[in-house]
Nucleic acid binder design. Structure first.
Lengths: 371, 371
DNA sequence: ACTACGTGTGAATCCCTCC
DNA sequence: GGGAGGGATTCACACGTAG
């Protein structure tokens, strides 16, 4: 493949392009710590009946059952370890990875991810609303696939747009089981002869939820098993940069045309709900400095059971306790911690008002005139 | 343990008893090829670190028991390989095994099962209808556990009561995802002091479906991690013989009393597992994920007086208001509440269509294969 | 008897910034 | 890098008590 470098001599990222070749080799040529998210839909590769192929496409010549079984699992494991090692190298320290699979391969993949140092955050079940039935009635309808979401390592940071996903789910925390239809109808890519362009095309709704939940606009998303480019199409739609790797020229061609047709959403639609966590921090002392609360004034706990007096330095003093609004609240409640902003109230004109109202006033002013 | 033999000199099966001791050692003393089904609920190796509190400051009662602590993945893997080897030895040639776990351990267990020669038939997802939320909002609600169902080896026969399961599922082929509540209320075993008798008691409805589906009356069911004996209780109820292995004397005592109380062929568990299903809630965000509405697209109020723009996370943004379809509708109308589904319309081909039409489409799809 | 409301709790790898 | 401290964060049920 072509080696690209930027002006500093560091290899540049080939953003929004489909790279040709084996993903392990191609990833070796990309710079370490450069990617925000990896979405991988690796080959399931474990149909031991009939033929079995190594990652390099050579056919495994079975001698007997024992040898064949050992050889095939071991060869799939080596392949998995190899691409996972390169994938992890490419991730930024606060990057994350999603891998999708079925019971044929997902257990080996999950164990390999843990062995490679990834830290599993959730396994997410894609529950298909319209799966193919088990025609022979010998097993359960295979109605789901499993995704593993993992950070780069134990304690590593990662992106999780909690509020946006909660909003997507009408105000209820998003669960680890997602009910979504399989990809068919107009979304399913076809060849000129009307056949499926790719046997395992994933629905865009699945990628939408993955990318809204674990990336921000402008992030770089890598898909090492690009296929017909669902990841790229949704990334472009959502204003994320993407890189695809695919060794099949036919799939690359379909993906290229498909992504070129995508109209990105406009910027304002990409702004998603955020939590208070992202809001600027307001020290309680500022309420006193600005005269919103007077030193000596009494605050009352939300439940009305406790009171404390405001001091000029923005601390509280109650019976035998003094400290921050949080510390005094925790001490009075005998709790391990306490959010003083939602715990304390002041009184004006006979009404009891949470002090958080004052913080919101300050934040509103800051939005008009940011520092 | 005591060695038992029957009249022919072959070791006899200690049917319908709880054996004391470490399951690997105990299994070594049982005869090869003697068991029809194994249900195993091994330690999950949760690796919990500090304490966790709910937003109301109450402390979560974590699984911190000694039996769930392993020094490393390697030591957990050795343990898993050892008990799986003995389990497989005990199975009849046409026997089968179920193992339940979470993302902490299930990938390692699944890979070890394949390595041990088991042949996976399905992975089955237990979708909890009432899981514990993720209190800190840092991950998805961990709302499911995974069960692996496997035969003794590739091509081995196994029991699958297809019609019985179909009947259990109101005439529709049983899928690989089962919606069942966690074990609480009256079914949850308590000590005299009112604490949980076992931290991870499984619901009887789960075992009911497993045993109805993959055993016949008179079959022998072995549970090497017996705990407080859910497997034994359901087996007795359904007229199956059972063997439990448990090393904790306290758990054995609770299980013994519990199983003695079971009336065989009680139909109560059946009623639990076929509990009625509520009308499915469809989040508005799903219309966006599924491409039925585009982020950036405008919606119009039914009366034509207001409009708002759809965002990628399924919220709306109008003049000075943003939030859910319901919130924005209420704000624009100055009303205390608003049903956004009937309030908002989208435009296609010059026609104005209520968004509720799209929700009805999704519900219709779900009715094809409910659960 | 029935409803309304408050409380308790479940296999959990659950914060982040600043000094 | 470790410790301190601000302050953000929950859904579905079962059960008990009040009205």
């Amino acid at each position: 493949m072509t080696k690209m470098t930027d002006l500093t001599g560091a290899p540049a990222l080939p953003l929004n392009t489909i790279m040709a070749g084996d993903c392990i080799e191609v990833m070796k040529g990309l710079p370490e710590g450069s990617v925000d998210l990896i979405f991988a839909d690796p080959p399931y590769n474990l149909q031991l009946k009939g033929e079995l192929h190594r990652p390099d496409n050579s056919r495994v010549d079975a001698v007997d059952d024992e040898w064949d079984r050992f050889s095939s699992f071991a060869s799939y494991d080596r392949f998995t370890q190899d691409w996972l090692r390169e994938a992890r190298r490419l991730l930024k320290p606060d990057g994350a990875i999603w891998v999708i699979g079925s019971y044929h391969n997902i257990f080996r993949v999950g164990a390999a991810m843990q062995d490679a140092g990834f830290w599993i955050l959730n396994d997410v079940v894609w529950r298909k609303s319209n799966p193919m039935p088990n025609f022979r009635g010998k097993r359960f309808t295979n109605a789901h696939e499993t995704m593993i979401w993992a950070s780069k390592g134990e304690g590593a940071k990662y992106t999780f747009n909690y509020e946006a996903l909660k909003a997507l789910n009408e105000g209820i925390q998003m669960r680890s089981d997602w009910v979504l239809p399989i990809c068919n109808g107009g979304e399913r890519l076809k060849t000129e002869t009307g056949e499926k362009a790719h046997p395992t095309q994933k629905p865009m709704s699945l990628l939408h939820r993955v990318l809204v939940g674990s990336t921000n606009p402008g992030d770089v998303v890598l898909d090492p098993f690009f296929g017909t480019g669902t990841t790229g199409a949704v990334a472009r739609m959502l204003g994320r940069d993407w890189i695809g790797i695919e060794r099949d020229a036919g799939y690359r061609e379909v993906a290229h045309r498909r992504i070129a047709d995508v109209r990105p959403f406009d910027k304002s639609a990409l702004q998603v709900s955020t939590s208070r966590r992202a809001a600027p921090r307001v020290p309680f002392g500022q309420l006193v400095e600005r005269g919103m609360l007077r030193p000596g004034e009494e605050l009352w706990s939300m439940n009305g059971r406790h009171k404390a007096k405001v001091r000029a330095d923005g601390t509280l003093i109650g019976d035998d306790v003094k400290g921050s609004i949080h510390q005094v609240g925790a001490a009075l409640e005998g709790a391990p911690s306490c959010n003083g902003w939602t715990y304390w109230c002041f009184r004006r004109d006979g009404k009891t008002v949470p002090i958080d109202v004052l913080r919101q006033q300050i934040r509103a002013e800051m939005e008009d005139r940011p520092d």
